[in-house]
Design a protein around this nucleic acid. Structure first.
Lengths: 160, 160
DNA sequence: TCATTGCGGACACATAGCATCCGATTTAAA
DNA sequence: TTTAAATCGGATGCTATGTGTCCGCAATGA
């Protein structure tokens, strides 16, 4: 199992979008350039975020993307689900219903193994759900000195 | 993200191996036949379980596999790690260190996003680690009537 | 009107998982 | 001692998914 790199891109994109002022919008090209990522593919992920309701898109000239909700109301789980899709990671193929020892009237429904994995996924989801874009931004800002913050602010002013 | 089907196969294989008596061994062919799975590929997964120390292999005629520890001491996390490999699912590409706004002396190390995902993975691991093969066997047995249990016992006697 | 931007589909490529086959080795049974 | 049964490891091919690009279309502000 491996988490697609697009989730990381989308999370950083949301962290950047948290810095755009009310009513503004950042184009896909600008978002991609901020982290030196390919624009075309970043645009794909932004479209997925928009479809999932994490960001809103503004079409036309001077358009782009902005967060759909305050950063404190967007969790990393929202981002992950937007990119990797909903639905469980573990898929029960019901292999216990095959083979020479299966009962004539098999009790359908997922087996104990599937339930255990889905329970673990719930724990995973809960942990990611408690981490918001606002938390990420706070921690990221803590790692920047005043000069770094002003450099980012200047870049953002130029990109808007 | 998707969990490979081999994890499910391996978990069911361990549940079956929990029923082999002390000193016995079940061949890869028999394990595959029990759930109507391709023998060659099931064998690959059993080799992975053996290499991870979840099962022990017995080579030669009348050989096969048995659990390396009591079922209560083998968790579903052990099985998942044996098949999918160790290491985190989320890989931090450190994309915050790229782009036009990166500081001259960047503070290396994973970002807050990576830490959040790894924390969630720890929760996932803890949940899976608390579910053992013994638990799975108990729940699976609960779904079988007496006739089903005796049919499985008879099949196992013939396969040993 | 025109340039800018998102939207959606089509396409190519790389990687990982799925599945099979083969020869070599080990070991119990004939 | 021979034979059959079984694991081990590597090589191979197929498929699905993720990565990345490109194009035409639609929308929108200048």
């Amino acid at each position: 199992m491996k988490i697609s790199e697009g989730v990381e891109w989308a999370a950083h994109a949301c962290a950047l979008l948290a810095a755009v002022p009310e009513g503004g919008a950042l184009s896909a090209g600008a978002i991609a350039a901020f982290n030196d990522l390919p624009k075309a593919y970043m645009a794909k992920h932004l479209q997925a975020l928009a479809k999932a309701g994490v960001v809103v898109s503004v079409r036309g000239a001077q358009g782009g993307y902005r967060l759909a909700r305050p950063p404190a109301e967007i969790s990393l789980w929202d981002v992950r689900r937007a990119i990797e899709g909903p639905g469980p990671d573990f898929h029960c193929a019901n292999i216990r219903l095959k083979g020479p020892c299966v009962a004539p009237k098999p009790s359908s429904g997922p087996c104990a193994i599937a339930h255990a994995f889905w329970e673990a996924e719930r724990a995973y989801q809960a942990a990611l759900g408690s981490m918001t874009i606002a938390d990420v931004v706070v921690q990221a800002a803590r790692e920047q000195d005043a000069e770094g913050l002003s450099r980012i602010a200047a870049w953002l002013r130029a990109a808007l």
